[in-house]
Design a protein around this nucleic acid. Structure first.
Lengths: 167, 167
DNA sequence: TATTGTTATACTCTATAACTATA
DNA sequence: TATAGTTATAGAGTATAACAATA
C-alpha cells in the first residue's frame, strides 16, 4: 500500500466552508482536557509575571530551587525522584541554574558518587524575589475564587492525582 | 568575573547528610504547583491506558482529532488558534497524523491558500475507539470524586483559566 | 499588502543506553 | 554488582523568521 508523502493534499473536493465557531464536542466535559488548558493558561501567566518583573524563570525551575533550598545537601538522584524526572534530564537543568550562579554542586562528605546540592547566597536572594512574584501570580490566578474555593480546588486536585497515580 | 564551567563541583565542604524525607515548603499550597503535578500524573495515566490497549496517542492528539471531527473542513490556522499553538508547530503534528492515515489535508473549494482538514474513515473509527479509552481513563482519574465534585472541579478550573487569561 | 502553509532553525523537556567513578 | 552522575542521542513540543502561493 503506497502511502502519500507528508502534508500531501487530497484532491477530492469538499463542500463544507470553514466552520465559523469552534465546536469542542465532549472535550470541555473531560477533566484531563480542562486540566491541560488551565495549566497552559497558568503557565502563560507565570511567564508574563516574571517577564514583567525583568526575571526569567519557569515554574519547574522555581519548584526545583525551592526543593533544594528546603533540602540543602540533597543528591541529584533525590532531586530527580522528587521532581518525577530521570536523572539524565536533570543534568542540563542544573547546568543552567549553576551557570546563573543560583545553585552549586558541592562535594558530598559521605559518598563521593553523589553531589550535595545547595543554593548560593545569590540563589537564596533570588528565591526570595521569585517567591514574591509567585505569590502575586498565585493571587491573580486565584482571583476568581474565594479562599475556601482555592483550598477545595487544591484538595480535589490531590484526589485526582492520587487516583491517577494508582495505575 | 570568571564563571566555573557547567556541572563543576564546589570544593567547599558541607556538613549536612542527604535529607531523608523531602520537604516541599510552600509548594503544596500553590495552585500552579498542584496543577502541574496533577496534570503530569493524569498524562501518565492517559499514556498507560492507551499503551495497555495497544494504542499510541497523546492527549494533545486526541483533542486535535476531536476538533477536526467536529469541525470538518477547518483550516490549519483555525485549528492552530483553537489549540493555542503556532501554525508552524501544527505542521509536523498533522504530518504524523496524516502518515497514520487518520487525517487528510483536502483542497479548500473557497480559498486555495488553505487546507480543509478532515478525518479519514479510518480516523473516524479510531476516534470512536480512542473515545472509549478516554472515558475509561477519565473514570479512573475521577474515581476519588463524586459526580458533583467532578463538575465542581471543572468549574473551578474554568474560573482559574479565566483569571489567568486576563493578563 | 496580508494571509496560509511550509521550511529552517533553535531551545526545552523528556527518555534510554552506555560510560566513568565510586560504593 | 549496584548506584550516581554524565554523555550521546533521539523524539516531541514549543517558538521566530523567512519564503512561496494565493487573496
Amino acid at each position: 500500500m503506497a502511502r502519500p508523502p507528508a502534508h500531501s493534499v487530497d484532491e477530492t473536493a469538499v463542500g463544507a466552508p470553514p466552520a465559523r465557531r469552534i465546536d469542542r464536542g465532549l472535550l470541555p466535559t473531560l477533566l484531563g482536557y480542562e486540566l491541560r488548558r488551565t495549566q497552559s493558561a497558568v503557565f502563560a501567566d507565570f511567564a508574563a509575571t516574571f517577564a514583567a518583573a525583568g526575571e526569567t524563570l519557569t515554574p519547574g525551575e522555581f519548584g526545583l530551587l525551592v526543593l533544594v533550598e528546603r533540602n540543602d545537601g540533597m543528591s541529584q538522584m533525590a532531586l530527580a525522584r522528587a521532581l518525577g524526572i530521570d536523572r539524565s534530564t536533570l543534568v542540563p537543568i542544573l547546568d543552567r541554574l549553576q551557570a546563573r550562579d543560583l545553585l552549586v554542586r558541592r562535594r558530598s562528605p559521605t559518598d563521593a558518587r553523589t553531589h550535595a546540592l545547595g543554593l548560593t547566597a545569590e540563589g537564596e536572594q533570588a528565591v526570595a524575589r521569585f517567591t514574591r512574584l509567585v505569590k502575586a501570580h498565585e493571587k491573580r490566578i486565584a482571583s476568581g475564587l474565594s479562599a475556601a474555593e482555592t483550598r477545595l480546588l487544591i484538595e480535589l486536585l490531590e484526589k485526582v492525582r492520587t487516583a491517577a497515580r494508582s495505575l
